[in-house]
Structure formats: structure tokens, C-alpha cells
Amino acid sequence: MSTTIAERARELSAAREPFVHATVVRAQEPTSARPGDDAVILPDGSIEGFVGGACAESSVRAAALDTLRDGDTLLLRVLPDGTDTFPDTPGARVVVNPCHSGGAVEIFLRPMLPAAVLGVAGNTPISAAVATLARFLDFEVVEAGDYYGATAVVVAGLGKGEPEAIRAALDAGVGHVALVASRTRAAALLDELTLTDDERARVHAPAGLAIGARTSSEIALAIMADVVRAVRCDDLRPPAGAPVVRPRQAVDPVCGMTVTVGPDTPHARVDGEDHWFCCPGCLARFTGG
């Protein structure tokens, strides 16, 4: 990673901003990119750095936005029209570069998503074990009462501060609140809170999967297994904040490439219909200019 891009990546990570790190891993002349060139792509489609010319950049932008949505890494292979220079690679996506300059390039796209946040309420051996295991699982652990942005909250006060912690988590919009309590005590506590049906559905009590856990570490394992299951199987997400504005995309009518529409995207309005292009060459071919 180049120094400038590395510094930018650290800034984005510290601010918990999602981005994609793109690195050129292989290039064939006459492409302008070279192995080691890299860039970051932000959720609005903007690219900081260099991974190729205008045509390659359009393909990188579209593919990077896809990786931000699904969280999977991707090897993007951009080839000149009518060629298959690079051998097939499992897990790679191939796009055609219609630019006359030619050249082939492979770019590795790695989405960098903020770590999931887990709130832990309580000062008990169970809460300590949950926090330790959560950090091992790459969660960011918050042990204070501000749970905005948390994916899940574990309430393990064992009788101390539980109503306040549950209320704070629900008010913050947390979708998975795990209460460490017996079934009987949990039912009595939740009845006292007079929760709505939606709020009650978000509270999981007793907390964790039923694995016969006894020790604090085993209980933590059961709780975190249920949180991971909710994230991976039920698509549990942190509370929605400001809506994410996805950049508009269009298909180049000449080469069929998906392009991200921005102020600098080549554009033509013909017979009352707007068209966007990957490069000035496709625009000229379409308009006969």
C-alpha cells in the first residue's frame, strides 16, 4: 500500500467509514497502471489514488460498490475487447475494456468495513468473559451506556442496572438485546418494563444458545454464538442512521459497461433520453462525433 493511500486508509478506519482498498496486482502494456498502484473507493463512488485510466476506473468503481454491499473480496480482471490474455482464475470477475489504448489489468478489491459493535452492560464475571470473547471475534466492545450504532447489546448485570441498560439499548434501536437471567426472572423483569411488541421481540432472554453452559466462559460462548448466528444467518445489522446515498449507475449503450454517473461522466442527451458513457471514445461513437 502506498504511503499516501495507507494514511488515508487509516483515517477512514479510525472514523469507522467503509471503503474499498483496490490494488493493481498484474498489468499488461499498454495499460497505464502498474503493479502496486492502489486507491481507496468510497461509498459515493469517488476514487482516491490510481488504478488505471478512465475505462478501467469505471469498472473498478462499479465492482467496488458491489463489494461494499456484500462484504466479499474480488479479483477484477479488465481485458481489452476480444481478448482473454490472462488465464481463468476462480472467484474473478472479467470485464471488457472498450478503450482503444488496450492493455489488461488485474485489480484486487478488498472491502474495509467497520467492525461490528457489541455493547456490554454489567460488571460481573459473565460480562467480562463476553467482552473478552467478543474482542477475540473482532467486535468493537462498548462498555458504557451509549449503545447507538451497536449491532447487539449483552445485559449481564445479574440484577444490577438491567432495566436501565435494556431501555437504553432499545431506545438506541439495537436489534438484538441479550439478557442474562433465568427464564422466570427475565419474564418478570420484562413485564415491569411494559415493552411494545417490537421491543419485546428484540430482547433475547435467557441470553445465548442452549448448549448447557455453566461457567462464565461457557455462557459467554453461548451468547456470542447466538450473536454471530444473528449476524450471519438473520442479517442482523446496527441501527440505521443517516441513509446511505448510492451513486447512480448507467449502462454505456456502446460497450455495455456499467458506469457510475457523476459530474465528469461523459454524457449525451439524444431524443430526450440521457445516456452516459465510460469514456469520450464511446460518446463519440454514439453521437457520430
Rank of each mutant, 00 (worst) to 15 (best):
R16A: 14
E17G: 06
E17V: 09
F19W: 12
T31F: 00
G36I: 08
I41A: 00
F50V: 14
G52F: 04
G53S: 14
S58P: 12
L68V: 07
R69D: 13
G71H: 13
D72P: 01
R77K: 11
P80V: 00
F86G: 11
R93Y: 04
V94P: 04
N97A: 07
A104H: 06
I107H: 03
L113R: 13
V117D: 00
V117C: 05
L118M: 01
G119Y: 01
G119I: 06
T124M: 14
S127V: 04
A128F: 10
R135V: 09
D138L: 05
V142K: 12
A144V: 08
T151Q: 07
G159P: 03
G161L: 04
I166K: 11
S182I: 10
A186K: 00
E192L: 06
D198A: 13
R200I: 07
G208Y: 05
E218H: 04
I219M: 11
V231A: 02
D234H: 15
P239I: 07
V245F: 03
R248E: 14
A250V: 05
V254H: 06
G256T: 05
T258V: 13
G262I: 03
T265Q: 08
D271W: 09
G272T: 12
G281I: 03
G289M: 04
G289C: 01
